[in-house]
Amino acid sequence: MTTQFAKSSRTGRSNWLGGIERLSWMLGILAILGFLYLPIAVLVAYSFNDSRSLTWPMSGLTLDWYQKLSQNDQLIQAFYNSVYVAVSATSLTLIIGIPAAIALDRFDFPGKGLFRKLILLPIALPGIITGISMLILFRSLGFNLSLQAVIVGHATALLSVVVTLVYARLQRLPASLAEASADLGASGLQTFFLITLPNIRTAVIGAGMLAFTLSFDEIPVTFFLTGRDNTLPMYIWSTLRRGLTPEINAIGTLIVAMSIVLIFASVLLLRDKTKSKNV
């Protein structure tokens, strides 16, 4: 109330200054939004450009590049490889990561501090470190580099993401729930599937979606661990070595479309969470 009163009693000159201030804020924010979205807009727009060159202004519209994509067997194979890797790595990292988060939240055991540090390390550590250390491991053991090696590498690097998200949710979950379940005679397995998992469901789904996205886009670990098979980002990467093509813009546009679907899905999941809170 007081601020409102103070504002209305200001002189015309400070109103004028306030207007300038508001205008410059708006321009600044618009510039930042432009900085964020112009490149993505360029990517999408030029995937429909009917010339090979990426010059301004665009010459005309075409769907040729999308048609070319559908005939590019290498690219389609790379896409399937990426889906295979991302789905497997996400499942693995959830299977290992959820128990890890539960252990960190509920159990005390010797070496817990080291375990926590180790498992969270890849959050801060560049992906290349995970990549080369696993390369050395696999080579020392005599294993061949392959998509399976990539899956193990991704699952390890993404463990930190899953553990962080699931642990944060577990911390907000009262321990009394699981204790009550145990007191009533439920086994650990029953308590997990009937009490704990339903309560951390959205965190698990969110972590899974994030892990999938990160794995689908991963380069530093894949770069060192893949054999002859390419994932989609590695295929794009190797195409970029040869120069720019509008085909890349077309793949990019499809990936952006997929990301938008994922973003909306995650927003909907968030809404689901707030609803269940009210009930």
Partner: peptide
């Protein structure tokens, strides 16, 4: 506005870096 700045995280990192190549290049935009 918050989502607007966080959402690009879901879009491929490689592609976001690559767009700058198309923008800044000699034959670029």
């Amino acid at each position: 506005l918050y989502m607007a700045v966080v959402a690009p995280l879901w879009v491929s990192y490689l592609l976001r870096a690559y767009t700058w190549k198309t923008i800044l290049g000699t034959t670029g935009i």
